[in-house]
Design a protein around this nucleic acid. Structure first.
Length: 581
DNA sequence: GCCGTTTTCGGCCCGACTGTTTTCAGTCG
C-alpha cells in the first residue's frame, strides 16, 4: 500500500484551518465543530490512518465531536493524503490564515480583511505591511492594532509554540508561594492548563483573595522574575516573566473564588458541557454564579458546582471534555492514582553511566522523599556514549547494591537495567546477566526511523523474551522536541498484555506514555509503572509529572504496579509473566 | 457540523475587553 496518509497533526491543522475560514465568513456553529474535532484528533493516542485501516469511517465517526461529514474528510486525508475541499479553499484564498491568527488579538475575520485589502499571504508579508504603516489604513484597523500585530509577531518569533509544564510549574509555584506571603492574602491558586497538568502551557493564570488587592498587585508586579508589566487595573495585572511566559493575576471577592477557579481551570469543552448540563437543570452557570431561577446558589467550593448539577467533583487533570462528565453522571468516574500513591521509582540512572550521583546518594534522596524502593536502571553497552554497562560491570554493580541493601533497613534498592533493544529486537545483554536482576526494563534508543511494521515487530520480539518486565518510554517522543517513532500502538498494547510486560509512564521531559496512550493502556488492561527517569537527586521532582500524566489518562492506583510495597510490587510484576498464555 | 436526560431535527456557553467606532464587531479565555 502506498504510504502517504496524513498524520493526526496534519489532519488537525487542516480541520482547524477550515474552521477558521468558516469563522472568517461568519458561518454559524461550524467553526466550533471543526475546532472541537481538531482538538479530539490532536489528543488521540492512535494514528487515524491506523484506526481507518482497522474499521473504516465507522470508527472515526464514533470519535466524540466527529460526525459523518468530518469523518469523510478524514477518510480522504488518510487514503489520499489530500483533501479536495481544503485545496480548493486554499486556491481561492492562498494565504496563511492559521499562522496569522496565531498572533494574539488577530482573529480570522481581521486576518481575512488584511488579506483581501493588502494581499498579505504570510507573516513576513504582514510584518512588512505593518512596518510600512499600511495596516492602519485598512478599514476597521488603526494604529493600535498595527502596533499590536508587530509586538505579537515579535513574541511569536521568540516563542514558537507553547511552554513545557516542566519549565513553567516551578515558576508558577514560586509565584503562588510569594503571593501567599503577602500580608492580608488568603486563598491563592494557579488555574488553567497548569492546574490540569497539561504537558504544555500557554500562560500562568493565578487567582487570589486578599484584604488589600492593591498591596497584592503591587507585590506581584514587583517580583524579581517579572520583566515587564503588561496591564494593571484595580483587581488584576498581567506581567511578562523571565523566559517570556505571561502571568495573569486576578484578586477576587471570596464569594467568587470557587466559581472563578472552576471557570479558568476549564478546559473550554468541559465548561461548555457543564453549562449545557446546567441549562438542562434550568440553571445557568458562569464565572459569576450558578443561577437557579435567576438567584445565585451559594458556591463556597468547586464541589458545590458539581453537586448542584448532580455530579461528584471531577479532578482538574481530566477536565478535558473527553467523556468525564458522562462518566461522572453514570457514577463511573475513576478513582485516580494519587500523588502520594507511588511507593518506588523504577527508572533511576546513576554515575555508573550517565547519572550525576552514586547509587547510595540516589537511594538516600529517594528515601528522603518518602519512597521505599528504587530500581537502578543504568544503560547497557550498546549505548556507548553513556558508558553503558556490559555483563561484567552489571554484575559488579549488583554487588554494590547487595552491600548497600545489607546495611539499610526499610528501603530497598532493586537491581535492574535499562537494556537496549537492538535493531532486530534482541537484547543488548545476555540472559545470565539479566537473570541476576530483580526486574528487567528495556527500551529503544536507536533506529528511530524504521517503518511502523518493522519497529513494532522489533519491540514485540523483545516482549517475547521471558525475562522482560517493563518497556520504558514506549513511544520515544520528547515534549516539544522529538516526535514518536512509527509504532502500531494498539498492537504493542495487545502484545504487552499477552507477554506480561508493563509499560512505563515516564515523568521526565519525555512524558511517555502520554495521557491518551495511558487511557488506551488502561482500557486494554495493560499494567503501568510511573517513573521519574532521574539522572540526579533533584530529578525525582519529575515523578509528579508522570503521576499527573497517568491521572490525565484516567489511571487508578490499581493500574499502576509501583503503588504497591516492594515485595507486593515484585510479585505482581512477575505475576504478569506467569499469567501469560 | 455535531448531537441526544426535549434523541434524527432544532438547537448549539458565557461574559469582558479592546479598538474602532458613535453603537458595535471581533477576539479572547
Amino acid at each position: 500500500m502506498v504510504k502517504r496518509a496524513a498524520t493526526n497533526q496534519k489532519i488537525a491543522a487542516i480541520l482547524r484551518e477550515i474552521g477558521l475560514f468558516d469563522e472568517a465568513f461568519d458561518v454559524p456553529y461550524k467553526p466550533q465543530a471543526y475546532e472541537s474535532a481538531a482538538e479530539v484528533v490532536e489528543g488521540l493516542g492512535e494514528q487515524l490512518s491506523d484506526l481507518y485501516q482497522k474499521c473504516g469511517t465507522a470508527c472515526i465517526d464514533d470519535l466524540p465531536g466527529i460526525g459523518e461529514s468530518i469523518a469523510k474528510k478524514i477518510e480522504e486525508l488518510v487514503t489520499t493524503g489530500r483533501l479536495k475541499a481544503y485545496d480548493q479553499l486554499k486556491k481561492k484564498y492562498p494565504f496563511d490564515l492559521a499562522g496569522m491568527t496565531a498572533i494574539h488579538g488577530l482573529g480570522p475575520k481581521k486576518a481575512m480583511a488584511l488579506y483581501q485589502a493588502l494581499k498579505v499571504k504570510d507573516l513576513k508579508a504582514l510584518e512588512n505591511a505593518a512596518k510600512a504603516g499600511k495596516v492602519r489604513r485598512v478599514p476597521g484597523f488603526g494604529r493600535k492594532t498595527e502596533d499590536a500585530i508587530l509586538s505579537g509577531l515579535g513574541f511569536l518569533r521568540e516563542h514558537e509554540g507553547r511552554f513545557r509544564l516542566h519549565d513553567i510549574l516551578p515558576v508558577a509555584d514560586r509565584l503562588v508561594g510569594q503571593l501567599k506571603r503577602v500580608p492580608g492574602a488568603h486563598e491563592v491558586e494557579v488555574t488553567g492548563s497548569i492546574r490540569r497538568m497539561k504537558e504544555t502551557i500557554g500562560d500562568i493564570d493565578l487567582i487570589m483573595t486578599a484584604d488589600d488587592p492593591k498591596r497584592a498587585l503591587d507585590a506581584f508586579t514587583a517580583y524579581p522574575e517579572v520583566t515587564q508589566v503588561l496591564m494593571r487595573s484595580d483587581d488584576r495585572a498581567s506581567v511578562r516573566c523571565r523566559g517570556g511566559i505571561q502571568a495573569d493575576l486576578i484578586v477576587l471577592e471570596p464569594d467568587h473564588f470557587a466559581l472563578v477557579l472552576h471557570h479558568f481551570t476549564g478546559n473550554r469543552e468541559h465548561n461548555i458541557e457543564l453549562r449545557t448540563l446546567a441549562l438542562k437543570h434550568d440553571m445557568t452557570l458562569s464565572e459569576y454564579g450558578l443561577l437557579k431561577e435567576g438567584k445565585p446558589l451559594p458556591i463556597k467550593k468547586e464541589e458545590n458546582i458539581y453537586q448542584a448539577l448532580g455530579l461528584p467533583w471531577i479532578p482538574p487533570e481530566i477536565r478535558e471534555g473527553q467523556g468525564e462528565i458522562n462518566a461522572a453522571r453514570e457514577g463511573r468516574l475513576p478513582d485516580l492514582v494519587g500523588y502520594d500513591d507511588v511507593k518506588g521509582d523504577l527508572q533511576v540512572q546513576t554515575d555508573w553511566t550517565d547519572g550525576a550521583a552514586s547509587i547510595e546518594e540516589m537511594a538516600k534522596e529517594a528515601r528522603k522523599r518518602g519512597l521505599s524502593y528504587i530500581a537502578v536502571t543504568d544503560h547497557t553497552k550498546a549505548l556507548a556514549m553513556t558508558g553503558g554497562l556490559d555483563e561484567k560491570r552489571l554484575a559488579e554493580q549488583g554487588k554494590e547494591i547487595d552491600a548497600l541493601n545489607a546495611k539499610t533497613k526499610g528501603f530497598r534498592i532493586l537491581k535492574s537495567t535499562e537494556c537496549d533493544i537492538l535493531k532486530d529486537g534482541r537484547l543488548d545483554v545476555d540472559d545470565a546477566a539479566l537473570k541476576a536482576l530483580d526486574l528487567v526494563c528495556v527500551s529503544v534508543h536507536s533506529f528511530f526511523a524504521l517503518s511502523e511494521s518493522v519497529q513494532t515487530e522489533r519491540i514485540i520480539r523483545a516482549f517475547k523474551h521471558p525475562l522482560v518486565n517493563v518497556f520504558l518510554h514506549p513511544t520515544g517522543r520528547i515534549v516539544n522536541a522529538r516526535e514518536p517513532y512509527a509504532l502500531d500502538f494498539p498492537r504493542v498494547l495487545r502484545a504487552a498484555k499477552e507477554y506480561g510486560v508493563a509499560l512505563e509512564v515516564n515523568g521526565s521531559h519525555r512524558l511517555d506514555l502520554r495521557d491518551a496512550h495511558v487511557r488506551e493502556a488502561v482500557g486494554t488492561g495493560v499494567k503501568l509503572v510511573i517513573d521519574s527517569d532521574s539522572h540526579s537527586p533533584a530529578e525525582y521532582d519529575f515523578l509528579k509529572f508522570g503521576i499527573a500524566q497517568a491521572r490525565r489518562g484516567w489511571a487508578t492506583k490499581a493500574d499502576v504496579l509501583n503503588t504497591k510495597p516492594v515485595e507486593a510490587f515484585l510479585k505482581a510484576l512477575h505475576g504478569l509473566k506467569k499469567n501469560k498464555k
